Simulated scan of single mutants.
Amino acid sequence: MFVTPAYAQAAGAPAGGGITDIFIQLMPILLLVVIFWLLIFRPQQKRMKAQQAMLSAIRRGDTVVTTGGIVGKVTKAVDGEDLEVEIAPTVKVKLVRGMIADVRSKAEPVNDNKPAA
């Protein structure tokens, strides 16, 4: 009585617009990848490079801060990855180079050709 009959819509243009339709559909995903690269991945890679450069430049006499917050002076490099750090007079600890969070002050370069004053 009150129900109207349903009619099918007429057929539209056939699909298959080609490569431009695929490109337009993938554009938001590509845009997100570019934004993530510029805002997250690239700055993180720069920080990692700077951290690695800082760790490789540590030498005897530098004042360093560990990831645990301990401040000390590097007394010697035990081997490639280990450092000996003096945290108090006569208290020396061995640390892994990767656990250094910051280098506070760099040691003065040693010049053996300087005449004594």
Rank of each mutant, 00 (worst) to 15 (best):
T4P: 00
R97I: 15
A8Q: 10
P28Y: 00
G16D: 11
I87S: 10
P28C: 02
A117M: 11
A117D: 09
I29T: 02
R60Y: 00
R60M: 12
D102L: 07
L55H: 11
I24M: 04
A50R: 10
I22K: 14
V64R: 01
I87M: 05
A53S: 02
I100E: 02
T66F: 11
D21N: 07
E84R: 07
T67F: 03
A8I: 04
I87W: 03
N111L: 12
G12Y: 05
G69D: 02
F41A: 12
V65R: 11
D79G: 03
T66D: 11
M99S: 13
V85M: 03
V85Y: 06
V96D: 11
D21I: 06
M99L: 09
D102H: 10
I35G: 03
V33L: 09
I29V: 10
A10E: 10
V74S: 01
K76H: 07
T66C: 08
A116Y: 08
V33T: 01
A6C: 07
V110N: 01
G61W: 07
V91K: 12
I40V: 15
Q52R: 13
E108M: 08
V78H: 03
G69C: 07
I100P: 08
P5V: 12
L55W: 10
P89T: 14
I19H: 09
D112F: 12
I100Y: 04
P109D: 10
G17C: 08
V64W: 03
A88D: 09
I70L: 14
N111D: 15
I35C: 02
Q45L: 01
K76Y: 07
W37F: 04
A107F: 04
G68D: 15
I87H: 03
N113E: 12
G72E: 08
V74N: 02
A117T: 13
T90R: 13
I24V: 11
Q51F: 06
W37I: 00
M27D: 09
Q25F: 07
A13Y: 02
I100Q: 03
I58Q: 04
I24K: 12
P14T: 07
L30F: 15
I58P: 02
V65T: 15
L83A: 00
G69P: 06
N113W: 10
T75N: 04
V85N: 06
R42I: 04
L32E: 02
G12N: 07
A6M: 06
V3M: 00
K92V: 15
F36L: 05
F36I: 10
W37E: 06
M48E: 08
I22Q: 13
V78K: 03
A11P: 13
G98R: 14
R59A: 11
K49M: 09
F41C: 00
Q52C: 01
K106C: 00
S56Q: 10
Q9D: 15
T67W: 00
P89V: 14
G16Y: 05
N111I: 14
V85I: 15
Q9I: 06
V93T: 12
L83W: 04
A57Y: 06
R104M: 05
F23E: 11
E84F: 01
D112T: 13
A53R: 06
I58H: 00
V71Y: 06
A11D: 14
V110R: 08
E86Q: 15
R47Y: 08
Q51S: 05
N111Q: 11
M27A: 12
G72C: 09
I40G: 01
